[in-house]
Design a protein around this nucleic acid. Sequence first.
DNA 1: ACCCAGGTGGCCC
DNA 2: GGGCCACATGGG
Length: 223
Amino acid sequence: MLQQIYRSLYKFFGPQYWWPTAGSNKTLEIIIGAILTQQTSWSNAEKAIQNLNRESLINPEKLRDAQNEKLEKLIQPSGYYRQKTKKLKNFINFLWEKHNGKLERLFDQPIHELREDLLSVNGIGKETADSIILYAAEKPIFVIDAYTARSMNRIGITQEKEYGKLQEIFHNNLPHDVGLFNEFHALIVRLGKDYCRKKPRWNQCPLNTRCDYASSINNLPDK
DNA sequence: ACCCAGGTGGCCC
DNA sequence: GGGCCACATGGG
């Protein structure tokens, strides 16, 4: 069922190009992006990342040594900039104190331990931790976000809202493939953005007529 | 003038 | 365990 939905979404929306296989030197940038995009549009996070790149701060030593005031100014476009400066510093200090500033060392552990490690950083919650594991460390874990519950609920897969339970459903019903998890999560976000916001436009969703799961969608009441 | 975005932690009960 | 709140900018 989930694979079928994935196929339908991919066929309709096409690839979403989320942090696509960025390569080793982009790894830290992905982590920073995951923090900066918290509750913020990607376009705003991107502006902040460009500012950091312009100052060559996307580098473990430089980021560690940068003054908070300087970071705050550079990442201002991403919103919550004082909070996020602290979060970036929390992560980079953790990386130096626990892994000698080496991302390879952080990532060189089983998924579960890596996740616990990331969650120990104040400012990194479940979604950000899982995003880092999937998109930066490129290990298979399914990222859940606000759209996932809404979309799955609306499609009729599950009423579940809890992060861990939702994640289990994906883990238990899909091959654990980094590329699949990467694209599927991005497609769910795309579906949510276009048709499943708080003010729903689900009735306008073209998938109603094109999707394999059309019947389950058409029978849903308006929310 | 709203509403919202690829959340999180702290507090309260 | 859940419900509320602060955090902040830019785009529709």
